[in-house]
Design a protein around this nucleic acid. Sequence first.
DNA 1: GAGGTCACG
DNA 2: ACGTACGTGACCTCG
Length: 509
Amino acid sequence: MKFDISILRAHGIRVAGALYDTMLAHYVMEPEQRHGMDHLARTYLRYSPIPITALIGEKGKDQKTMADVEVARVAEYAAEDADVTLQLQAVLAPLVRKQEAERALAECENPLIPVLVDMESEGIRIDSKALAEYSKVLEKDIAALEAEIFKAAGTRFNVSSPKQLGEILFDYMKIEGKAKKTRTGQYATNEEVLTQLAAEHKIAELVLEFRNCQKLKSTYVDTLPEAVDASTGRVHTTYNQAVTATGRMQSQNPNLQNIPIRSQRGREIRRAFVPRNNDYALLSADYSQIELRVAAELSNEEALQQTFREGRDVHAATAARVNGVELTAVTPEMRRQAKMVNFGIIYGISAFGLGQRLKIGRVEAGQIIDAYFRQYPGIKTYMEATIAAAREHGFVRTLLGRRRMLPEIHSRNATLRQAAERNAINTPIQGTAADMIKIAMIRIHAEFSAQKIKSRMLLQVHDELVFDLCRSEEQVVREIVERCMRTALPMQVPIVVEIGVGENWLEAH
DNA sequence: GAGGTCACG
DNA sequence: ACGTACGTGACCTCG
């Protein structure tokens, strides 16, 4: 457990119990300290005989304010020797109020706690047999690739060691004069470098494929079956709800938010995520282009909003505008560039960064950005206003009021300062999308309970929710999930949710 | 435990 | 001259 109990002592608080209010921690503690608290709080809730509603406060008649909730806590805690939470509340609640973060706390984070408790307890079923077979396939591929690599190199070495690989490629084989170095002076052998080399040198291609197989095997195929809980037969991840800088969640031990999908070899792993039994299927619900829609909303950029209202392909529409051509004249290359620019906007664009991604010069990238800002002036205004606000206050907020402090915004070091400026632009966008899906999760969970739905929410992957779908409930579950996700936050821009159902996670997409 | 790499949104 | 696209977690090597 990473949590350091000294934080309690620092506040002059006697340590008598473990429970703590996750979200209060979010606003006043460092990430390292929050991490442990977050886990402790939910572990406690899962095993506590005290009703959850008593711990987190029930919306309703006589529990309307935070102070009211405290009354309920006092009663429950009187029987326990657990005054830590209470005493911390006294110290921290005024801080939350001072930060005007009560909405994020009351509407989002606190009610989310029991939802996550249920999701973690529920777990997800995986097909360990299928993974074991896939492991054998990968093992053979890896052995064959390794043999070919040794042949191409003319020597044996540890292909998994970036240091050894770099020395073989650039010193022993001398395949390239101008080898890139990493920060520490070692040869860089990452995907970008190897892809460059692959055109001329077969060995680079082989190493990329070796790495791909090795990654899939060691991180997913061999590891997931080991994570199956002996008593439930399912994989139970741990979610941290209040650790990241933006308000997104994390999944760990194992991380179920980075299961492969982009490569053909990788996406096969999703076939091994299966429903609990034959009466169930998996349902996946995705927000479409959520961060770009949030950006259009926050910036009040009329043209971008209009594109979404008309339900058009936003990247193609952007390409048409920026290039000054008809929609029908947009080439795939133009669309690809426009997509990169749209992503760049969300990340807090820079000419250098865009140029690198598009493999074009900084000046040319700058011209594309200028053209973009001419077409979408609201985006430009929004970026400037956001940075100005960050400078004034030292922080930025999401729609719900979640804060991110940005002390580096005043740094004399340009690199640090510019990074803070990109954070200022990105955080309200990424964080508001995070607020939105969290609220959707709370409402879906509530409606499932009220209607005694047997289907269960299993996973959250930032803009996607995955459910064990009881087949007889398909219609009603589709309706609840789509509506709760679409309407979680009131927005001018239409929110679109795409839903798929299948025999496994891959087919549900 | 740091560094490098790579899986995801 | 420098050097960034934003947010994460896990695995492997190596000192």
